[in-house]
Design a protein around this nucleic acid. Structure first.
Length: 403
RNA sequence: GGAGGGAUACCAAAGUGGCCAAAUGGGGCGGACUGUAAAUCCGUUGGCUUCGCCUUCGAAGGUUCGAAUCCUUCUCCCUCCA
């Protein structure tokens, strides 16, 4: 019995940033085994749409592990909060979503999440189910459970408050709604990033308020993006998307800072602990070239989302294109009419540069090549040829197709 | 409800009548060096077929030969008091 508990704990602890409180988790697991009753695990999902990044998969990974341990995993789609318009993005108010948008976003989220989770064993819930019917009286009652000072403990609010930045009153309601979700779901465990700490604890607080057993908060570290400093996010553009092509995923992985490699291995791959230890020591003793370790990482990531063959192909592609400076074979094609075109115009027409000024600059800075020849005069006229390869910077290519 | 402070480019922050397409820093982009890493160095960072022209300093009007800078109204934010 205790052995089984320990085994579960070991899996859960792997890569986890914090478990609050761990003793309660032990108790819950023990009871779950004794009564053969799986724990309810909650993961809140923001239906603001678009594509998942590797950052999102950190938590999903942990969900899957819990799933494999036999617990009940519930994905909670925040459709209600989504329709109201979540203001958490400090700088700009998010646009409000229609019912249809929310549902289609939720579906696309689930499709993506199922690349990590087992769809057969995953339940999907919507918080509009219990939030929408609440009366104003209910809301007032809910808000009376905590004070402004308590709210301001949340880092985000605190920072804005002390920094004289605006906080809208309704923003205070979001942690409450999220916390109330836990009450409605009778969650045993809620998973989230460390940035969700406040909200996860809010769930505990409200459950207590409602006379329920409190959930355990399990927090995963935040995965830094390609820049190695800021949280991986779509809006910062420093992300690897799980829907991205093999070549993109591979290349982007290669560009993460070395220091992040191990963390990536731990949080977004299935590389076994023993092997991970070898990689770590290899890097420390310099018997393993960081580049090779990173290539392994890139391979692992691409394999997960595209399969082993695609991963190998992406690696080949990477080697030829970037290590040897060759031109990739999957260059996007651009249709153009036959004739002669001013370079600057050519670059903007093909979408390689956003404006003439930008294109001009690229040329002047020596970042433009046509068929491998550097163009250094912004006034150059180009005779278009079928199959002509345009290159801007290191990564942007286009192939000319004459109509 | 009262009093005061503020809004400048991607962000932060100078500029208070012409020398301002707007200092400086960060970020971004390009180049060199590399392992498409980091660090470093150089360049660049409104638009336009660009030694010139056009549109920008919260919004709209006005004063002036000339406004980011002065005046009026409006919008938004912040602080203190009640």
């Amino acid at each position: 019995m205790e052995e089984a508990v320990e085994r579960q704990l070991a899996v859960i602890r792997l890569g986890t940033a914090e478990i609050v409180p761990e003793e309660e988790l032990v108790k819950k697991i023990r009871r779950s085994i004794r009564e053969n009753k799986p724990l309810v695990v909650k993961l809140g999902v923001d239906p603001s749409g678009s594509d998942l990044t590797l950052g999102h998969t950190v938590v999903l990974n942990k969900m899957r592990q819990l799933q494999e341990l036999g617990h009940r995993i519930q994905l909670l789609i925040g459709d209600f909060t989504g329709m109201v318009g979540d203001p958490t993005g400090k700088s700009e108010t998010r646009k409000q979503l229609t019912r249809e948008e929310v549902l289609s976003n939720a579906k696309s989220y689930a499709d993506q999440a199922f690349k990590v989770l087992d769809p057969e064993k995953t339940e999907i819930l919507y918080n509009s189910q219990w939030l929408a019917p609440m009366s104003f009286e209910d809301v007032v009652k809910l808000t009376s459970t905590l004070t402004v000072a308590r709210m301001l403990e949340r880092e985000d609010f605190h920072k804005r408050f002390t920094g004289n930045l605006p906080i809208s009153l309704h923003e205070f309601l979001y942690p409450l709604m999220q916390g109330y979700d836990s009450v409605a779901m009778k969650a045993d465990i809620e998973l989230g990033g460390t940035d969700q700490k406040f909200n996860l604890l809010m769930g505990r607080m409200l459950q207590k308020e409602f006379g329920q057993e409190q959930q355990v908060a399990i927090m995963m570290p935040i995965l830094e993006g390609l820049d190695g400093v800021q949280k991986m996010s779509k809006s910062l553009g420093n992300y690897i998307g799980i829907n991205e092509g093999p070549n993109e995923q591979y290349g982007k992985t290669m560009s993460i800072p070395d220091e992040l490699m191990v963390k990536y291995f731990e949080l977004v791959t299935d590389v076994p602990i023993e092997e991970l230890a070898m990689i770590k020591s290899g890097l420390a003793e310099q018997t393993l070239h960081p580049r090779d370790a990173k290539m392994r990482l890139a391979r692992e990531i691409v394999t997960r989302y595209h399969g082993i063959d695609a991963a190998k192909a992406a690696e080949e592609h990477f080697k030829t294109v970037f290590q040897q400076g060759a031109i990739p074979d999957d260059v996007p094609e651009v249709q153009l009419a036959e004739g002669t075109l001013w370079v600057v115009k050519l670059l903007t027409e093909t979408g390689l540069c956003p404006s003439n000024g930008e294109a001009r600059r690229m040329v002047q800075q020596g970042g433009v090549k046509i068929n491998g020849e550097k163009i250094d005069d912004a006034e150059t006229q180009i005779k278009l040829e079928n199959g002509m390869i345009l290159q801007v910077g290191k990564r942007k290519f286009a192939k000319v197709i004459l109509q």
